[in-house]
Amino acid sequence: MTAFPILRRSDRVLIQGVTGAQGTFWTGHMLGVGTNVVAGTNPKRAGVTHLGLPVFASASAALARMEVDIAVMFVPPQAVKDAALDAIEAGIRGLVVLTEHVPVHDMLAVFSSARASGARVVGANTAGLVTPGEAFVGIMPGHNTNIFRPGRIGVISRSGSLGTLVCLNLTRAGLGQSSFIGIGGDAILGTTTEEALQALDHDFRTDAIVLVGEIGGAMEEDAARYAATMAKPVAAFIAGRAAPPGRRMGHAGAIVEAGAGSYASKRAALERAGVTVVDTPHAIPAALATRLSPLVPERA
């Protein structure tokens, strides 16, 4: 039983596309922090050993020989659907899709299959998952201890770069992280802000949560409804306040259309739910420290 999308060191990880340049670079870092990577796949290089890991032709071939909890995909956009369906059919219940620009219809097929099999997808277009001191998967500097430190703050972010900055700010303020969940920048995601928030709310290692949102869609509004029911404090920063409407700001999901997905709507919904919404990323640790002081008197 895994805590996915919260990553644990005990999670057995399969890297699909392990032999490519990015797969090799990041798998090396994952292994370096102690992530339990057990194998990789490459349809053309089955049988070789890469980074000390056995390489199989497919997830199904790997699962015939070992157990795997999480599949992490370093594959090009056109190959994501087949790789993900392979992982789900092989019996893997946690998928992390890092790839950007995956066709929406391909992800809908993946979500449909995951739903039928009881699997959970994180992404697409996520930077990954980090549990400082335990493990990380993806393309985050999870090995950099100036940025990620063990602690009790859960962080949810649509963006890898901004999420990294937020964790750096927390670490410098003496607030380590229980888990970082990168949910991804696409418009349709396997794990939403609300679902990540629920996971961290139920996690006994997490005392408070930082929600790093963006304009576009309704995920922050949906998460606000859940946040209103929570006892744990939540602070939020929403990117895109100065973005012009009607333009896609880099992420497929980051667009304000016909008045929906605006900064004002998200901020208002979160504030109504009792979430502290800050104006700058630097203000997050202070906002949290204020909310945390009654819970952890030694910091007061």
Binding site: S157, R158, S159, G160, S161, L162, G163, L165, G185, V212, E214, I215, F237, A239, G240, A242, A243, M249, G250, H251, A254, P281
Partner: peptide, 9 residues
């Protein structure tokens, strides 16, 4: 800047 989120920010 690098990354959509950081650039918007």
């Amino acid at each position: 800047a690098n990354g959509a989120g950081l650039t918007m920010t």
